Deep mutational scan, measured.
Amino acid sequence: DHWEIRVGDITIHLKDVDEEIIRWVEEALRNGDDLEEIKRWVEEVLR
């Protein structure tokens, strides 16, 4: 699977990601969370 999350001008590409993570990231972006923080979290989860 390949996911693209778009929020404003930001697009995040994710592969082999659980839908729950996608929802979490979308929510975090909508809440204005720091992008670097989100990326770190996702990388942590995917490890």
Rank of each mutant, 00 (worst) to 15 (best):
W3D: 02
E36R: 07
D34E: 08
G32R: 09
I21K: 03
D1H: 13
D34S: 10
I22Y: 12
E26W: 15
V7R: 05
E4W: 14
E20H: 11
E44H: 12
V42W: 05
E19C: 05
I38Y: 04
D34C: 14
I22G: 03
L29I: 09
R30I: 06
R47T: 11
I10L: 08
D33A: 10
E20M: 10
G8A: 05
I38N: 00
E26Y: 15
E36I: 07
I5P: 00
I38K: 00
V17P: 06
D33L: 15
H2F: 12
W3I: 05
V45Y: 15
V45I: 11
I21G: 01
L14I: 07
I12F: 15
I21Y: 03
I10N: 04
K39I: 11
D9K: 06
R40W: 02
E44N: 09
L46Q: 03
L29S: 01
T11R: 05
I12G: 02
I38Q: 00
W3P: 01
E36S: 06
I22H: 04
E4Y: 14
D1A: 14
I21W: 09
E43M: 15
V45L: 13
H2Y: 14
A28W: 12
L14Y: 06
I10Q: 08
A28I: 10
E20A: 11
E4H: 13
W24A: 06
V45K: 12
I21T: 06
V7M: 06
H2N: 09
K39T: 05
T11N: 03
D9P: 09
D16T: 11
I21C: 04
R40A: 07
E43Q: 13
D33E: 11
E26F: 15
V42Q: 00
R6M: 06
R40N: 05
D16I: 11
D18C: 06
L14Q: 02
V7N: 03
E43V: 11
D9E: 09
G8R: 03
I21P: 00
D1P: 09
K15D: 08
L29A: 02
D9M: 13
T11F: 11
V25C: 02
I10G: 03
R6E: 04
E26H: 15
W24V: 04
I22R: 13
E27M: 15
R40Y: 03
D18L: 14
I22A: 06
R47F: 03
K15F: 10
D1T: 14
N31A: 08
T11D: 03
H13N: 08
V17M: 12
L29N: 00
A28K: 14
W24M: 09
K39D: 02
R40K: 10
K39Q: 09
V25Y: 02
D33I: 15
R23G: 02
L46M: 09
E4P: 03
I10P: 00
V25Q: 00
K39V: 11
I21A: 03
L35P: 10
G32F: 11
V17F: 08
R47H: 10
V42R: 00
V17Q: 04
H13Y: 14
R40D: 02
V42A: 03
K39N: 04
I38T: 01
L14D: 01
E36H: 07
I21V: 08
I22L: 12
I5F: 13
I38W: 10
E26K: 15
D34Y: 14
R6C: 02
K15V: 08
D18V: 14
I5V: 07
L29Y: 06
D18G: 12
L14W: 12
I21N: 01
D9C: 01
I21F: 10
E43Y: 15
K15A: 08
R23N: 04
I5E: 01
R47E: 06
N31L: 10
E27H: 14
W24P: 00
I22F: 13
E36F: 06
K15C: 09
E27A: 14
R40L: 05
E20W: 15
I38E: 00
H13P: 05
E20I: 11
T11P: 02
L46I: 07
R6A: 02
R30Y: 07
